[in-house]
C-alpha cells in the first residue's frame, strides 16, 4: 500500500514528531508508515485523515499486489 503521508506532512509543514503527538503514537510509527514498513489500523488511518482534512483514500492507495 502506497501513502502520501510524507507529502501531506510537508504541505502542512508538520514534523514527524508533531504528527506523532497529534495522533498519540510514537515517531517511529510515523516513520514506519511513511516508509511503507507498517500499514496502520483503520482507526489510525482515520486519525491521519482528520489531521490533514482529507479522506483516507486520498492519503492511502492500494497497489496491485494488495
Amino acid at each position: 500500500m502506497r501513502n502520501r503521508l510524507k507529502i501531506e506532512r510537508a504541505i502542512c509543514d508538520i514534523t514527524q514528531d508533531d504528527l506523532a503527538k497529534m495522533i498519540e503514537v510514537s515517531r517511529q510509527t510515523i516513520n514506519s508508515i511513511e516508509k511503507n514498513r507498517y500499514v496502520p489500523s483503520t482507526v489510525l488511518a482515520l486519525k491521519l485523515s482528520k489531521v490533514f482534512g482529507k479522506s483516507v483514500n486520498e492519503i492511502f492507495e492500494l497497489e496491485e499486489e494488495d
Binding site: 498519540e24 510514537s26 514506519s32 507498517y38 496502520p40
Partner: peptide, 9 residues
C-alpha cells in the same frame, strides 16, 4: 515506554 499500535502488533 510508548505503547502504541505498532508496538502491540
Amino acid at each position: 515506554k510508548f505503547e502504541d499500535e505498532l508496538v502491540i502488533v
